[in-house]
Amino acid sequence: MLPMNHAVFVVKLVEKPIHLNYKEYETIEIKVQFPVLRQKDSRSELTLLLWGDYRNDFLKYYKVQDYLIIQGILTLKGYKDRENEPKVIVKRIYPFLLV
């Protein structure tokens, strides 16, 4: 059974990753956008957090304007610089090909 905050999204990369150091972990933070807005007042952007092998694979294989399927945990934890911005801690990442 999956936790309540588990999510799967199709997203488009809109910015280059930002490298962060959190405690002893090297992470990257990536801004992504949903391909299609469903409501006028809905949020269109999301921030992904990646570390470990996913971080290295992302830097090696993906670039801005690519589409991805991401699976992860949705969190609203506030950080020092940005409060209550939705973030997804990525557990799996897949390329999404548009034909």
Rank of each mutant, 00 (worst) to 15 (best):
K91E: 10
R55E: 01
N56T: 10
K63Q: 14
L74R: 02
T75D: 11
P35K: 01
G52V: 05
E45W: 05
K87M: 02
K80E: 10
I73T: 10
K63R: 09
V32I: 11
K77I: 12
D41E: 13
I28A: 00
D41M: 07
G72C: 05
L46H: 01
Y94G: 01
N84K: 14
I28D: 03
L59K: 08
L50N: 01
Q71P: 01
E45F: 09
Y67I: 06
D53M: 00
L76D: 15
Q39N: 15
E45D: 05
R82A: 05
I73V: 12
G72M: 08
D66W: 08
V64E: 13
Y79R: 02
E45K: 14
G78W: 06
F34V: 04
R92I: 04
L46S: 05
Q65T: 14
L68H: 12
L48C: 06
R82F: 14
T75V: 05
L46T: 01
D41P: 04
V88F: 00
L49P: 00
Q33H: 04
S42H: 07
L68F: 04
V32M: 02
R38Y: 13
E83W: 02
V90S: 07
Q33L: 02
K40H: 12
V88W: 04
I69R: 12
D41L: 11
I69E: 05
D81N: 13
N56V: 10
R55I: 03
I28G: 00
Y54C: 01
L48N: 10
L76Y: 14
R92L: 00
T47S: 02
I93A: 07
K77S: 09
E85L: 14
E85G: 03
G52L: 02
I30G: 03
I70E: 02
N84G: 07
V64C: 09
L50I: 04
T47M: 03
V36T: 15
D81H: 13
I70A: 01
L37N: 14
N56E: 13
Y79E: 13
V36Y: 13
R43Y: 14
R82V: 00
K31E: 06
I89E: 05
K60C: 10
Q65F: 10
T27Q: 10
T27H: 12
L46W: 07
Y67M: 09
K80V: 12
T75H: 07
K31C: 06
D66M: 03
R82I: 03
N84R: 14
R38H: 14
L48E: 00
Q71F: 06
Y61R: 09
K60L: 14
L37V: 13
L48G: 03
S44L: 07
R55P: 04
Y79W: 13
K91G: 01
S44T: 15
T75R: 10
V88T: 09
R43M: 13
L76H: 08
Y61E: 02
R82S: 01
V32F: 04
L37D: 08
L37R: 15
P35M: 08
L49I: 06
I69C: 10
K63N: 15
P86D: 08
V88N: 07
R43G: 05
D66E: 08
D57V: 00
F34H: 06
S42R: 06
K80L: 08
D53R: 12
R82L: 12
Y62T: 02
R55N: 08
V88R: 03
L76F: 15
K91A: 07
W51A: 09
